[in-house]
Nucleic acid binder design. Sequence first.
DNA 1: AATGAATGAGCGTTCATTCAT
DNA 2: GATGAATGAACGCTCATTCAT
Lengths: 190, 190, 190, 190
Amino acid sequence: MNKGTLAKEEIVSIAADVIRSKGYQATSVNDILVAGDIGKGKFFHYFKTKHDLGIAVVDRYIDTWKTNMIEGILQTDSSADLRIQHMLEETIESFQDSNVRKGCPFGNLAIEMSEHDASFRKRIESFFHEWALALSETLMEAELATPKDAYEYAEHIISSIEGSILMAKVKQTSKPIENTIFHLKKTLFH
Amino acid sequence: MNKGTLAKEEIVSIAADVIRSKGYQATSVNDILVAGDIGKGKFFHYFKTKHDLGIAVVDRYIDTWKTNMIEGILQTDSSADLRIQHMLEETIESFQDSNVRKGCPFGNLAIEMSEHDASFRKRIESFFHEWALALSETLMEAELATPKDAYEYAEHIISSIEGSILMAKVKQTSKPIENTIFHLKKTLFH
Amino acid sequence: MNKGTLAKEEIVSIAADVIRSKGYQATSVNDILVAGDIGKGKFFHYFKTKHDLGIAVVDRYIDTWKTNMIEGILQTDSSADLRIQHMLEETIESFQDSNVRKGCPFGNLAIEMSEHDASFRKRIESFFHEWALALSETLMEAELATPKDAYEYAEHIISSIEGSILMAKVKQTSKPIENTIFHLKKTLFH
Amino acid sequence: MNKGTLAKEEIVSIAADVIRSKGYQATSVNDILVAGDIGKGKFFHYFKTKHDLGIAVVDRYIDTWKTNMIEGILQTDSSADLRIQHMLEETIESFQDSNVRKGCPFGNLAIEMSEHDASFRKRIESFFHEWALALSETLMEAELATPKDAYEYAEHIISSIEGSILMAKVKQTSKPIENTIFHLKKTLFH
DNA sequence: AATGAATGAGCGTTCATTCAT
DNA sequence: GATGAATGAACGCTCATTCAT
């Protein structure tokens, strides 16, 4: 928690914002420098390359999401049904206002980086895996899926959500997310 | 169909490939020039800006998709049920091999360009709208949806598909697409 | 001999001067740009990299030297003795005034680049080889060496000359060159 | 011989290696830091500038060479003839294996630094002077030169050696050195 | 004394675009 | 119309050095 660490964290935090909005490749190092009033030397003192920063940003996205969505919702001690409902509501919450336009940090980077950069791709892949794992366990506990089909059901739910966030970004309204959550709920709890 | 037009089409065709794989922003004008052995003067003779080319590429994606998916599948004279099945099968077909990694040209550009570029966004939005319209009519015809909920159901199906293509890109396997088609079919035709 | 070629030649010519004086690595692209009032775009239009320019500069040194020293002196139709004397006098001539400080373009690059850059090294090596070849033939013709030892004698003469130019650079006077030429002549013609 | 001095010597020693191989200008402070696992603060604590370090490195080269070549060979109590022979043999010894490619530390810096940096130049100049002085005395003692021409003869021998090391670097073989030593011996002792 | 953090000018190169013919 | 040449701002990154403790 010394000064150095703080400074580094600060850069990651600023970069996380800029990158979520502009994408990784379209964000220049200078964009981040300007956004945070940081000198070039400082930046490259903490990060060997722009790529290193990019990875730090994804890791930060993942940490945040794990805390909020997985530990904070799917692995609490509410009833399994409630936890799923909570996850779905929370998704709608998260993509209101300017966040609709920005889209999902993971979905954005997934599409931008997966084909040509393994280090981004693998991190995002394992994040989606962890989410699917936590969700599949909750689905089983709620008796909405059997052990046999729980993981794939979870994956389908997650990919539907991602698709709806993509759609919301294009339409610049959260309706597609609400629509998808509505259909998912119908199928889950009808 | 004179030489000028041919040359222009050729550039769009080459650019469409490169952009699908690298994204619009990460693709430099030079990438396209090299890929097609085209001179700089030639390129900017046909396209005022890189942005102009980008738009031409999206329009080309849309034309192709309309011909193949909307006119070629959803608006043929097979039975409505079969048309929907055909659409779903065709989706799986389209994302085999190297196409899994490349992802959906529309989804890719949707995420990359929607927030900051209205001319890309609107084209992609209206494309998804046309697809949803054609699908909702087929859903009604197949009595899988009422006029009231058909359009939103169609949108949900499409966004699920887009989400699964995104997921497939991250995992570098077409499994997520097959999984989603499986779940969509179950809900549609159970 | 069109304009494009001229422009390229002009850059090589300016760069040849700068590099001879500062060395290849210590010469920045910007140094050349400033020296010739050239725009950055122009420079990189003609040369893919700084390295490419460096190679063009060496090739230019070699062409000049071949014309002047080999064709212009060693392979004329004077008597063999006179040609050797001419070569030695010309060496002294070439390293008067500011050229003493600049040193030999080949010797400079030989030392700077040989260890870590094969494309420079090979060019310089083959240049010294051609010089030694032309000199050894003249030595034989002048009956100053037998076919058996002519090439190695030639190499020794050339390396002595290079050493004396190095020494002259350090002492900032052409004396070491004159001294070495004196000793070479004594041994050759005593 | 306290800790501070040790650390300083250690840096000079590491830098001497790196600079001999890469040259002074092409060696970045960071290259040295990495080679010796030294922190930036430490480096600039001991040396005000990179230039200061460079000078320390030359001084170290000179000390070593004085001990080995001048005191260790030319000023021993063997016969003058033997001392000269020893010097010539030692030169061949010194530039075997990887040292052929690295070249002579003095010759390298002479060419790289003489024109634009007086503090390097003067050190190297006076080093060559001391060498020539010691050699000329030995030449006189061996009756291979008169007081009148001894110094210039010594200079010629040294510059021939330097030239042959340069040549060896270009050809990546020690042959040119052996060739030059052979010719020098022939002229000296025929 | 000793050192990691911070600095900003400069590096070689690429960028989308305009010029000149 | 058609094109290679030219442009200079911006790119990610390294540089030798100074700061703060």
